[in-house]
Design a protein around this nucleic acid. Structure first.
Lengths: 190, 190, 190, 190
DNA sequence: GATGAATGAGTGTTCATTCAT
DNA sequence: TATGAATGAACACTCATTCAT
């Protein structure tokens, strides 16, 4: 009833979080060959504990991705209110790619954002898509982004960049240089 | 060393080719979950035959990729002699992405072209890299591509586009639109 | 022994009964693949509560069986005082088989009644045996059942019929017809 | 090429037989809790070898049962040509129950013979059924078995007896006595 | 050289049981 | 006392790889 209350439930929440975190780390390290057993060890919990929180390996993976997308989507709010719509747009693009570089596994979802609205992923994908679309429209209205850029190719480029950044562990410098080139293609040619 | 002719050699070559081809098809269809047995069945050979030619699953996959890269590299020759160096450069970029869309599995290697020169892949990756570099330099000299575009970011963008095209099965239209945007970023701003 | 009343004892008894009932239902439905968790859910109690009352899955199953045997044994009392000992004997046999058809899981114990006096089962099995024996002797004295029928083969036939009825879910008609044949074998040939 | 030829194939056949035999033994000993690993160890083969021959645990179990039924069905041929149809009928019934006592696991199928024609079991069950029906009809024509005995109750009684004999490991004496009683019920009352 | 039977480590998943709350 | 979160042994099954034929 107080701030510190409900210790049992708290422990469970804590384990859930530990599993999620471990899954993120192990997935980043081992890729798709990560095993549930390894994740359990990494999280310092029993194998069964994972299954208490996530009924399936796939469910766990989805939860990892959803978790990260939620955080990313939350970051967009501030940018949607930013003074410079163009800067906001490019910053968010950059932020997403940075995130992929660090954490991996995001790309797959972004990849499917425009394509495969599977299971519980559908909603969150749509949310991400919507947020990106809003930033795009604002930036276009401000004349910072070319008018003939539409969502399909924007998502395609975003997904592509994330995948490569994640897979090849782009350095900060490479990311900067690469995005700089890419952004030149997205900007208005007055 | 032997007095006899080598009719079997022809058969062996044939089997090797059959396995390679089957591996390409099955990898494209089943992705990483493709099994050696499936490939053997598809090739119409015994499981052991695969192992005679390729010591390891990984070796087979590498061979598939090398095979495709060789063909892609060969395609570059004509373009290196083309009249319009800019068009040649963009055409080759497009060609590689098309290839990824159709056949899958290429992206991974391209991805690593600038990074992970593992095993026998090193040489062919370097060849590919060289060919691309030559096309780039010609195009830059002709003023068709910006001077400040260097190999790392070019390869990064190429890898990114291939991965996404392969994974998300870009339609012809999406590929055209996406590359059009991207190419605007690569071009010279006079 | 304590100075306090025991209102909780009533709750405990109630939970024990609920678990027992749920176990019967779930065992009938799911057979041996029934899980403790399912039973707990069905009973509307926590998993731990089952273990408070029954230390082991096996103990619970035994309790279910003992419970049912007790009820069956109780039914025998009236028949032991019945006017027609022959009818009483055959009716009880029939009743037991009917019970097996409806509820499942009884057969296994009956099966072991003459054989495996394990754990707390021993007593109740003996009670059941005694009651059957009494009915048999009365029926034999009344000339309704052949003299050379002894307990081992009677129990064997009873167990056999229960198992099959339970496993194959005999219809009422099949049970009637089958027992009719069987009973002809048990009757006296004058 | 001679009687001893084809060693490779022979080995495979041999392993299949070994697995089948081991499965029979282990199933008899451990019941349904028998594990594939245990069977493999018992057979002296690797775990994968079982799966080479039987795609599924269920498939293996079915194969065990089918194997035994085939042998039993083969035994019926001689009896179908016997001089005394009544004796032949009762002998076959006895033979099947004996078999169940020794080997276990047969009962389940017999149980389902009249009921659940699942998968590849259907044919062999039908064969068994047919053979029993032929023996029954001959015995009825010879006046040795009551006319009003029909297949459903005959199969029910056979299944029942097999189950109990198998589960409770009837001694020879118990089997003789029990069947003797039962057969009195099957015979004609002139 | 070609075959495919054999192998067993490894995987995802279930479930009886324990114990902190 | 009741709860259900945690545990991990156990299971069916897959698949890269080896090797006898």
């Amino acid at each position: 009833m107080t701030g510190e209350a409900r210790p049992l439930r708290a422990d469970a929440q804590r384990n859930r979080a530990r599993v999620l975190e471990a899954a993120e780390v192990v997935l980043a390290r081992d890729g798709l060959s990560a095993s549930m057993r390894t994740i359990a060890q990494h999280a310092g919990v029993g194998l069964g504990t994972i299954y208490r929180h996530f009924p399936t390996q796939e469910a766990l993976y989805q939860a990892v991705i959803i978790d990260r997308m939620q955080r990313l989507i939350a970051e967009a709010d501030a940018l949607l209110a930013a003074d410079d719509p163009g800067a906001a747009f490019f910053e968010y693009f950059t932020r997403i790619v940075e995130n992929a570089t660090q954490k991996k596994t995001l790309a797959d979802v972004l990849a499917e954002a425009d394509i495969d609205p599977k299971a519980g992923m559908a909603d969150i994908s749509r949310d991400m898509r919507d947020v990106i679309e809003k930033l795009l429209i604002r930036a276009q209205k401000a004349g910072a982004v070319r008018q003939d850029l539409h969502m399909p190719e924007l998502l395609a480029l975003l997904a592509a960049t994330c995948m490569a950044a994640e897979r090849n562990q782009w350095s900060d410098e490479l990311r900067t240089r690469t995005l700089s080139i890419l952004f030149d293609g997205l900007r208005s040619h007055h």
